Amino acid sequence: MSELVTGEAVALELRPAKLPSRALAVLLDLAVAFIAYLVVTTGVVIATASLDEAAQTALSIAMFVLVLVGGPIAVETLSHGRSLGKLACGLRVVRDDGGPIRFRHALVRGLIGVIEILMTLGVVAVIASLVSARGRRLGDVFAGTLVVRERVPLTRAGFVPPPPPWLAGRFSGLDLSAVPDGLWLAIRQYLTRMQQLDPQVAWSMGERLATDLAGRTGAPAPHGVPPAAYLAAVLQERQAREARRAFGNGAAVASPAPPPAPAGYGGGVAPGGGPYVAPASAGQSSVARDAVRQSAAPASQDASSDGPPATGFAPPA
């Protein structure tokens, strides 16, 4: 999917963690793990003093695997990428597309970490992080993850505009399991930077992304819905599902049923000739309202041109 994102839209809004902060987080995690390993091993040895030497050796190996390998995997899975060391350093492990990691990501990182961190004293991990453009070690490369900084100031550059209210909940039953992480990342990058692109380039890129997404989900954009609005609505649905999976059903409120588009606004153009912007709901923030207005602005500028319309979010005909 990298060919769908031009040089104006490839900047990743997530900030990869630097090697010193990652190393400090790993040292803190290892210190906690070794303390837990010593405590557990001492208790097991005392409890199994009557066993023979071979049985005690087998138990020691089992404790090593359970505490130093299984422990970090379980912690990262349950905390969604925040171990104790990463929590102290303000870091978090996320997928390449910015979503929370799952068990398989933590498992791959933990198993490869045994080789590149424990068995080589971190030499392989340091070399891999220095070579990688985003500071990823081998475990991150194979797991498709990235360690990012969480304690960063929010900026408008990384703001993903919400879909128009009349599309909210339209794709609640869509099957998103076949959409790869790379496509989600390309969609996020496009939506955060489409206002910085030439209108025709932004429209063409949105159409390509919408076609690719429709091919993966089997549900094309509704007739008359601009590609950017379709992409924003599907992305919001995916983020809502990720939030429910990560934090429970109470953390994300289900999107309401989409209200019908107002009558008399064919093609998203108001009676006065300007672009129609769906009214904000009572709970919509001022930032969201500004984003919807800004997204509709290019449509008015290019309404008279022969080229494709801009990426403004306007209701379908």
Results as ranks from 00 to 15, higher is better:
Leu176Met: 12
Ala246Tyr: 04
Arg216Asp: 06
Pro220Arg: 03
Ala36Leu: 13
Trp203Phe: 11
Gln301Thr: 09
Val75Ile: 09
Met1Cys: 07
Arg293Ala: 12
Ile127Ala: 09
Ile46Thr: 10
Tyr37Met: 13
Arg156Leu: 15
Ala243Trp: 10
Arg22Thr: 01
Ala88Glu: 01
Ser204Leu: 15
Arg102Thr: 04
Leu84Ile: 13
Pro260Thr: 03
Gly7Cys: 01
Arg92Cys: 02
Ala125Lys: 03
Arg289Pro: 03
Thr41Tyr: 11
Ser172Gly: 08
Lys86Phe: 02
Pro298Ala: 07
Gly307Leu: 12
Gly144Val: 01
Asp181Thr: 08
Ser281Lys: 13
Asp198Met: 12
Ala9Leu: 11
Val32Asp: 04
Ile115Gly: 01
Ala303Met: 13
Leu176Gly: 07
Arg241Gly: 05
Gly182Arg: 15
Gly218Cys: 06
Ala221Arg: 08
Gly99Val: 12
Thr217Ala: 06
Val108Tyr: 08
Val201Thr: 12
Pro309Cys: 02
Pro72Gln: 08
Val201Met: 12
Pro199Glu: 07
Val124Phe: 14
Pro258Met: 05
Asn249Ile: 10
Ser79Ile: 06
Glu150Trp: 03
Thr57His: 14
Arg104Asp: 08
Ala11Asp: 05
Pro162Asn: 03
Leu191His: 00
Ala74Gln: 05
Phe247His: 15
Ile117Tyr: 00
Ala314Cys: 08
Val45Met: 15
Ile112Gly: 01
Arg244Asn: 04
Arg241Phe: 10
Ala49Trp: 11
Arg151Lys: 13
Asp140Phe: 07
Ser295Tyr: 12
Gly248Glu: 04
Gln239Tyr: 15
Gly267Ile: 09
Gly144Trp: 10
Leu27Arg: 09
Ser172Cys: 06
Arg289Met: 11
Ala23Met: 13
Leu146Val: 11
Val114Thr: 02
Ile101Gly: 01
Ala11His: 00
Ala310Ser: 07
Ala280Asp: 05
Leu27Gln: 10
Thr120Asn: 04
Gly158Lys: 12
Ser300Glu: 14
Gln195Trp: 12
Val40Met: 14
Leu213Ile: 01
Gln236Gly: 09
Leu19His: 08
Leu146Ile: 06
Val124Gly: 03
Ser50Cys: 10
Ser304His: 13
Ala157Ile: 07
Met119Gly: 02
Gly274Ala: 14
Ala296Glu: 02
Arg134Pro: 00
Ala210Ile: 06
Gln196His: 14
Ala263Met: 14
Phe171Ile: 08
Gln284Ser: 11
Ala278Met: 15
Ala252Val: 08
Pro16Gly: 02
Ala74Gly: 06
Ser83Tyr: 05
Val94Leu: 14
Pro199Val: 06
Leu4Ala: 07
Ser286Arg: 15
Val67Trp: 06
Gln189Pro: 00
Gly7Trp: 00
Phe159Thr: 06
Ala55Asn: 13
Ser50Tyr: 11
Leu107Pro: 01
Ser132His: 05
Pro262Ser: 06
Val131Lys: 04
Ser285Thr: 11
Gly182Met: 14
Met205Ser: 13
Pro161Cys: 01
Trp166Val: 12
Tyr37Gln: 05
Arg208Thr: 04
Ala202Gln: 07
Asp97Trp: 05
Arg82Trp: 09
Gly266Thr: 14
Phe142Arg: 03
Gly169Trp: 14
Leu30Tyr: 09
Ile127Val: 14
Glu150Lys: 07
Leu78Ile: 09
Arg149Cys: 12
Glu13Phe: 13
